[in-house]
Amino acid sequence: MGKYLNKVFLIYWKDIRDEVRSFDNLLSTILFGVMLIFIFSFAFQLADLDVEQAFSAILWVSIFFSSVLAIQRSFAKEEENNVLDGLLLGTGDRGSIFLAKFLCNLTILLIFEAVITPLLWIFIGASGVKASLGLLVPALFLGSWGLAAIGTMLNGMTVQLPAARLLFPILLFPLMVPVLVAVIQCTAAAFAAPGESVAAWLYFLASFDLLFVIVPLLLFDYILEG
């Protein structure tokens, strides 16, 4: 078990170092997210709509769209010089590659959210509104977990179909609908007056997340067959 986790950690650490060294990739994802929240909040203001009410919607639409950029890189970078074959030979186990890639994507998404969430909060002019961080942080974490898990699995497939890169969001978004419903409830509740309990939604998210780490682990042998 310890050996397995060590393997996962080594691949994870390799990917994180790669992200740090090619920082412009992460940066362009973050910039894309910033552009999205800017356009959304500005458009809402221009149309004279209540932008505070739309906070959770804007936040998660931006995260969903940007996650496509963030996650699509995770296997694509292994294509050069057949690194993926090397990884397979080195680990001899596909599950650990999935876990490492998933954790890396989760980390990237969390860093991304740490930047755009406060920014959106400022953009919509809700500085007076108190947010319950105890609810917002778990919602962001569990939502990103789901995105990273399903996204990593699907990216393992689409990266092997060079003609079908555009399919990635088309495959991803329908599967993410339960997460979308749940995280919007939780995020909205974090800004509402305390009272309405969303604990059930958090449990739902947690079970979804667990399920969609186990299912890809079982299926990943079939995805990276080559």
Binding site: I150, M157, L175, P178, L219, I223
Partner: peptide, 15 residues
């Protein structure tokens, strides 16, 4: 594609 479609068919059904 056939293999991936099969995987997607399973995951989508669970969803």
């Amino acid at each position: 594609r056939q293999r991936f479609a099969a995987i997607y068919g399973i995951v989508a059904f669970i969803n």
